[in-house]
Design a protein around this nucleic acid. Sequence first.
DNA 1: AAGTGGTCTAGACCACCTT
DNA 2: AGGTGGTCTAGACCACTTG
Lengths: 233, 233
Amino acid sequence: MNEHTRLSWTDVRNRIRARILDRTYAPGDRLPRDEDIARDLGCARATVHRAMQDLAQVGLVARRRKGGTHVLRDPVTRTTVDIPVTRREVETRGETYGYRLVERDIGSAPCEVLARFGLTRPVEMLRVRALHLADARPFIYEDRWVDIRATPEILDVDLARDSANEWLVRNKPYSRVEVRFSAIDADPETAQHLGTATGRAVLVIERTTWIDTAPITSVEAFAAPGYKLVTRG
Amino acid sequence: MNEHTRLSWTDVRNRIRARILDRTYAPGDRLPRDEDIARDLGCARATVHRAMQDLAQVGLVARRRKGGTHVLRDPVTRTTVDIPVTRREVETRGETYGYRLVERDIGSAPCEVLARFGLTRPVEMLRVRALHLADARPFIYEDRWVDIRATPEILDVDLARDSANEWLVRNKPYSRVEVRFSAIDADPETAQHLGTATGRAVLVIERTTWIDTAPITSVEAFAAPGYKLVTRG
DNA sequence: AAGTGGTCTAGACCACCTT
DNA sequence: AGGTGGTCTAGACCACTTG
């Protein structure tokens, strides 16, 4: 290697990763201190820090103050998922987006929904069920609860025209989100909306969001059979 | 605010995020240059950079050189998923892990598998089907293909004792992974292994990994009914 | 108590991309 | 061609956590 070329943090990351892959640093091992690695490679400590940040993010190493940096014994497969606004997802596929409000009413959220928010006392919420279409075919059916205390404005939105999905995403950025993936056998109602048979496998994407600790909304999105969710490269 | 307290990058991030939430910076808007924000807040540009890095990571803003920083018009729900080694996942639940090899053989990978790897020519691979148990009940059934060219050592592993899942994770860290989630109706074989009925909804987690561009392995993990995958907080 | 990673600053230069 | 974010450096101090 050329002594005179400056190392970028990706160079440093690649070198360290290579040493992990070839077992120079084996699972469970403690890596040298950032400062020592920096001296060895001839770069600034901050550069090593940036590289390590990436390796930690990816789940290859864990870092603790005073404890040092360790190669994880049981690496996890860590990946990032982007869930776009449904309209955008449909349009990206080159299909025509459609939307239909199924039902809108206000009522006390069932305890299963309260549990998602971490609430213990009953709360009145807006419930919206709606169908998203791709080329006039059912694409995603959503069952959503909105906490009116934090988002009273949504009561004035014409949800027959604009989907709550879109309105919320545009008007209520969250600061925390929790997502769950599961598969269920379609109940008769869901099956009907999705234009499929009762009992068919449906992918469920459950999303709950907060601003700080204030609940905003919780949705179950039921995807039509054949739907796949792909992670970002 | 106290002029004398130093701002941390999380402080800066929170302030900028607050301005996005309250529409000071509305969707589509261009934010001031990092340098200007830094001057306004009285901190170093690097601190603003660190804050922006976080906001971009979360999918609230997009940054381009010369283009500046923009509030995204269609924010995406971006989240991180950790998929642990199955044994660990079971143990974390406080249950007893069990493992059973179902079948192991070598053959030409079907084009569906080749497609996942981005391969066009047929390749001989090791195919391993195995069952992971939690408290002696079926937990995850996996159907895996391993590219022997990059991982010939696996041919010497006693897969009746040690799961390929575990061996690979420990011995073949990858540098790239792609994950897909979907739901299928259990075919008779899968249903049998999972101890459920044919046609029941099953969550499928498909993972394909590479070292650089060399294919390592591709698995379909079929989760027993009731399984949920949760994102990291 | 002390070691290690985390952060902040100030300044410089670079690379990318829009105009 | 020039503006903006991205990165690197060197040094200092801080905060967490372990021995």
